[in-house]
Write a protein that binds this DNA or RNA. Sequence first.
RNA 1: GCGGGUGUGGCGGAAUUGGCAGACGCACUUGGUUUAGGUCCAAGCGCCGCAAGGCGUGGGGGUUCAAGUCCCUCCACCCGCACCA
Length: 854
Amino acid sequence: MSGETPARYQPQTTEAKWQAAWDAAGCFVARRDPARPKYYVLEMFPYPSGRIHMGHVRNYTMGDVVARYKSARGHSVLHPMGWDAFGMPAENAAMQEGANPAEWTYRNIAVMKGQMKPLGLSIDWSREFATCDPEYYGQQQAMFLDFLEGGLVYRKAAVVNWDPVDMTVLANEQVIDGKGWRSGAEVERRELTQWFFRISEFSEELLTALDGLENWPEKVRLMQKNWIGRSRGLQFGFSTVDAPEGFERIEVYTTRPDTLMGASFVAVSPDHPLARHLERHDSEVAAFNAECRRIGTTEEALEKAEKRGLDTGIRVRHPFDTAWELPVYIANFILMDYGTGAIFGCPAHDQRDFDFATKYGLAIPTVFVPEGEEDAPLAEAYVPPKTERVHYVRGFAGEEVQTGDAAVEAAIDFCESRGVGQGVTKFRLRDWGLSRQRYWGCPIPVVHCETCGVVPEKKENLPVELPSDVSFDQPGNPLDRHPTWRNCACPRCGEPARRETDTMDTFVDSSWYFARFTAPRAQTPTVAAEVDYWMNVDQYIGGVEHAILHLLYSRFFARAMHRTGHLPAKAIEPFDALFTQGMVTHEIYMTRDARGRPVYHLPEEVEDGKLRATGEAVQVVASAKMSKSKKNVVDPVNIIERFGADTARWFVMSDSPPERDVEWTSAGAEATFKHLSRVWALSERIAAMPEGGPAPGDGDLMRAMHRAIDEVTRTIEGFAFNKSIAALYTFTNALAKAEASGAASRQAARVLAQLMAPMVPHLAEEVWAMQGGEGLVTEAAWPEADPAMLVSDTVTLPIQINGKRRAEITVAADATKDEVEKAALADDAVLRFLAGAAPKKVIVVPGRIVNVVL
RNA sequence: GCGGGUGUGGCGGAAUUGGCAGACGCACUUGGUUUAGGUCCAAGCGCCGCAAGGCGUGGGGGUUCAAGUCCCUCCACCCGCACCA
């Protein structure tokens, strides 16, 4: 480093220098190395929106800490990066600014990559790809064809949000209060024939395999379990009275057959065949069904809507008593997708049914009551857990007092023996609809032929590339109205045919990118030798908002890829460990305009609670996820320019546990910069220390050093990076105050550099070089803590009297319980409290605490 | 509505999983050094109280020698809900 060493910590110059050094040494190029254990760390890849944000910085820094740490521990590390590049924002930009989606996307990728590079992430950029590269989506199309051949893809009708003014399909987020976001028109539900992945074939398997995902957060496994929603129930048919021809029976599915004697009505979905039949002949039914279809397609909207029904006039006979007739309603809260699209309502033991029965004046017969209570009219539905024992007053199978679970099984057995339906297992999980009526996605590689029907494209014709000459001046899918793109020859008969114009859901793109990173340029989707070596992802890191869909779809895809020969059996669970990180939040600064509407201000426009420009006081609203609409965003680019990447990286890793939200504050960023500056100055001071002989403080410093190694190692392993940072503060303070020799101080400073390196790699290289470290700290082996240096020979124990801390004693670390008790009872403070009396009880927890009970 | 989660000083959080609540950092206060750049150093800092002492982990109740941690109950906020990525 010679005399050119800057006089101050100057990340702007040093960070670029070390990044160039890492590149020159090829530190981050992933290599298959049979001599070393491999480690694959992956952060969920970003959508190229145009700028990186602090959430990205936090996400990728976490992955970087793991990657650099594992590398120092001797692993051959794969740490790639790519772009989830298809999606609606590119089309929106095309519509609003006339941009070309591909150009817009690749421009954004270039900008974001330019913003990410200065962060100094240990990424193997040679493996980079975007999902909108024909090279990538062509392989995706090849797999689609394999899935099709393997019976994992099929077509069926499904409902979409239809905007009747824009004549286009809307995403759920484009439907606001039941109206199209652009046109403002009432959105309709419309049926289209669409492509589906047969994920439901794996329902049972995807559920049971969750148990093996021990390194996934418990909450994510639980959410997936509930989403898959396995249930045991009874399916049976009610025979009808006065029903149209062909509807002699209505099949229902219930998870509570034990409440069959509490039935008071039958309800069918507005999309049920019976409801559809009736609406053709009955204007009242047609109007009601149309009203229901306006609610939208999300489960949330259906559940929140007011529960409404229409009496069809049709009745059904109770299976146990043909004289007992129940009315049949069409009801807006019955889902056609779940079960049979028809239910019987038991208002006494289901709150929705209770509300419905109350509204329409239907009977509410009680089936069971709490043990030891009498049957009495209910004010609300009585819904105890199925594991609780209750007293059946209208039971028909099993014991009079039993749990709900037992009653359900008894009811199924009873019904089956009487020929009333059969016990079935059903899943909530529906097949995955992948068709999108949009341009900017992976084309579905099939052809529609007049004579041959739906024909897969030949693999040698892949990729089916998107045309670039498209216009967005009118609504709808540009592929549909492209003059030539749709025209093609039938791969089977050669006659003129028409391409499929639907493209794939972008979740398809992100369901296998992790596998593609192992061989990103291959002419096949994957390469056996590479997936065998690199899979599985050892550590996957991303937002909890992906807990269900992305992760479940990826688990399905891995199985489908295995079945079609693209992944080995060991990779059917592609992510060995999952970590879900929290968001980066910031305070919101708000003023109001003349009409009292809120006006938001960027943090850099505000100083000391006032607007910089006008001096007007701003209202500070509680911290929330950074969002453009609230303007509570801090641009990482500005932070890196001002303080350097290490400050940004250190800050997002400090304070909050990684799984929780972290609040960005300018004071915190400044404090981080000051700390890193102090470390730099401290290192410079230590580098200049004379050699000298051993000093009295050497022992203490070495003990502090080994404690730091131990603490930082354990906390990185445990994904508690905030605690790693706290340990680094403690060690730095100890080093700054140590009265140690030059040799010991330099050794400690080198270890400090190694321990800091995963979080602040550039500063770590500076310190390492100043202390005469060999080569790059990035390539140095992780230090080991000496266990002998971690223990002390005495320990100070608190003494409680009746659970309140009153004194403390210092005893030998290996003192027996009796010795500790004797020492505690001899303590002055304890003697004062005892006042001559004998204690009732003395609890000694070795190494922890003593509690004297009077 | 359903499913999942979170709640500890002025602020972010820690607590070895039932054993000293507040580690570490920010902010703040006091003192010192130096004043040029974004200073640095030392000390203090949960709340009430002059003190002795009392109170304190979202609210209420319980189990225990001992509860932030376990149980019951209530409240608030956040995330997901299948076409946002």
